[in-house]
Simulated scan of single mutants.
Amino acid sequence: MIEVRYSTSPSSVETARTADLKDNFLIEDLFSKGEVHGVYTHDDRLVVGGAVPGDAELELPAWTEVLGVESHLERRELGIINVAEAGHVLVDGEKFELGHLDGLYVARGSEVVFAGAEAAFYFVSAPAHATYTTTVLERSKVEPVELGSPEGANERSLYRYVWGQDVQSAALQFGMTVIAGGSVWNTFPPHLHDRRTEVYLYVDLAETDRVFHFMGQPGATRHLVVADKQAVISPPWSIHSGSGTGSYAFIWAMTGENNAYTDLSPVALEDL
């Protein structure tokens, strides 16, 4: 199944009810055993999805009624990260093993099948103008960028899987940030991506923990309360930052005008 989300204006968010914010920006139910769920957002036409194979293999759906194609990746590229136990992905019949938080970039035009009794695959697809090379991205082989400090409660490790260098993509970028023990803040101070939409998937939270995700324009911020394996759509006009009640990680994915990772605008705290 796939759900369609429409774009919203910044002014509508300032006066929105909490239920409205959740309906427009929070994705709560991506992962269901034996199924593939997706959300299509008109913000940069991203597809965000989850596949939980269980004892069967699951094909990446075409969702022709929404995408207008016979195959999902006919004119798209795909990023995948396994958010559960080991499993594998078949790309045009070639098998790629993915452990917990390992990633896979899949080229335009490919056919994809998910498998693994204990695996759960998070994926994001975006329109692509070119075909590049399918590449596995093992977390253990990606050198993280260490950011933040214990004093600021924002010490974290940034894993850049596909980010405009090393692995080529048309416009899709994705990776992961792991918050250090004792820290709570992510992506702080916040920033804006005026030319790109970003999606956060929060993972590895304890059942009783939550992340308070801050969004909205600077000076008019709102928040969402997010549980494990829930995602937030962050439009180009919105900040994205969060603070958790316990340890967690988040998977970030972006697409838009470019795949230049540094194309962003910092927001000063006094402007929030």
Rank of each mutant, 00 (worst) to 15 (best):
G242L: 11
G216N: 04
D209S: 05
Q217P: 00
S238H: 01
L224K: 11
M215F: 05
F214C: 12
E207N: 04
T208D: 14
P218C: 13
S243Y: 04
R210Y: 08
V225Y: 02
T245D: 08
F212L: 05
G219E: 11
D228V: 02
F214K: 11
Q230M: 12
Q217C: 10
Q230F: 10
H213A: 06
S238Q: 04
F214E: 09
T221Y: 09
G219W: 11
R222M: 10
P236D: 06
S241Q: 09
M215I: 15
H223I: 01
H223G: 10
K229R: 15
H223Y: 14
E207S: 13
G242V: 08
S234C: 14
E207H: 08
V211L: 14
M215W: 04
S234I: 15
H223W: 10
E207K: 10
G244D: 02
T221F: 01
F214T: 14
R222T: 11
S243F: 05
W237F: 15
Q230K: 13
S241M: 06
A220L: 09
T221V: 09
V232A: 06
Q217G: 04
I233D: 06
E207T: 05
L224A: 12
H240C: 08
R222Q: 14
D228W: 02
I233V: 13
P236R: 07
H213M: 05
V226R: 13
S238K: 03
W237Y: 07
A231F: 04
F212D: 02
A231N: 07
V226A: 12
D209M: 03
I239D: 02
T208Y: 00
R210C: 01
S243A: 13
F212G: 01
G244L: 02
R210S: 04
P218F: 12
I239K: 01
H223K: 09
V226G: 07
P218R: 14
H240F: 10
Q230S: 10
H240P: 09
F214L: 15
R222S: 15
G216Q: 12
F214A: 13
T208V: 03
T221W: 01
R210H: 07
S234L: 14
V211I: 15
P235I: 08
I233F: 02
L224M: 12
G242E: 08
R222L: 11
H223S: 11
Q217L: 15
R210D: 00
G219T: 04
L224I: 08
